[in-house]
């Protein structure tokens, strides 16, 4: 105690703490973080503040203030639904990065990917993350469906949310498949050829469906542009709408199912 009195000059740590407190007490800071935020000055762990963290933040659109105790057990959900959504966000971020370096034309597409991998900082890494992330998303969405089925979570009142889930699975596969063509290499071209040939066998309007999707009778530059727009704009737009309904229904139907 005596030592502190002998040396009244504040230490670096004390000064940093003081500046931190001033920033946290400022009007600008408090205009960003609403009351109850963990980033606000004097946050204490109280039931009231625990409620405010959700209720006073944008997270309230996703989560209720309280959830069933068994719902937070990792062994019940394996986080699969949440992780699917999270990978979708990662894919959006990495995908926007890729869009800066990519032109969806037969003459440029492959060369752009090649250049991205060899000449763009972190280009290869981001492309890898987008590619592997896409496979992970197909996997997590599929496993999420299996998990929900084995827990009988599709039963009333959640029947319709299960239907939306099947639509989301289909959209995930379509997103992955449309993205598969975009590198415009031998793998992409012939995998998509195999896939779209199957579509042509749809009864009654098979060849029409194929024509609309390919932008012609064979895969070509028009297909690339078409699938690019589907991949970066239309399908993400549609899947986000269905995800919004899916997450909203989870809450409206009484939170996640169970316990068993």
């Amino acid at each position: 105690m005596a030592k502190v009195l002998d040396n009244p000059r504040p230490t670096l740590k004390e000064r940093a703490a003081k500046i931190g407190a001033q920033i946290q007490g400022s009007q600008a800071w408090n205009s960003i973080f609403r009351p109850g935020s963990i980033f606000r000055k004097g946050y204490t762990d109280s039931p009231r503040n625990r409620s405010y963290v959700i209720m006073n933040s944008v997270l309230y659109h996703l989560h209720p203030v309280k959830v069933k105790r068994h719902a937070v057990k990792v062994s019940y959900t394996l986080c699969l639904g949440g992780l699917s959504f999270f990978v979708f966000i990662l894919l959006t971020v990495t995908g926007i990065f890729l869009m800066f370096f990519y032109r969806p034309t037969g003459a440029n597409a492959w060369q752009d990917i090649q250049t991205l991998q060899t000449s763009v900082t972190f280009g290869l890494l981001i492309r890898n993350m987008h590619r592997w992330g896409a496979h992970i998303m197909v996997l997590t969405v599929f496993l999420h469906m299996a998990r929900v089925f084995y827990h009988g979570a599709y039963k009333p009142p959640r029947e319709f949310n299960w239907v939306i889930g099947v639509i989301l699975l289909t959209l995930t596969l379509l997103l992955s498949f449309t993205g598969y063509l975009l590198p415009w290499d031998q793998l992409a071209l012939w995998a998509v050829t195999v896939g779209t040939n199957m579509m042509g066998y749809t009864p009654v309007f098979g060849s029409q469906v194929r024509f609309v999707l390919l932008g012609g009778v064979e895969i070509g530059s028009e297909t690339l542009l078409r699938w690019y727009v589907l991949h970066v704009l239309m399908l993400p737009f549609v899947i986000v709408i269905f995800m919004a309904i899916h997450f909203w229904r989870v809450r409206k139907d009484g939170g996640i199912s169970g316990p068993l």
Binding site: L90, N128, H135, Y180, D185, Q186, V194, G195
Partner: peptide, 29 residues
């Protein structure tokens, strides 16, 4: 995902060639 993408590269084969059909041609997994 970061570590995996760091270690394993995504495939990028030769540029698309309509006159050269790979054998076998497979759809995505």
């Amino acid at each position: 995902l970061f570590v995996f993408s760091w270690v394993v590269n995504a495939p990028l084969l030769q540029a698309a060639d309509f006159n050269n059909t790979p054998n076998p041609s497979k759809a995505p997994w």
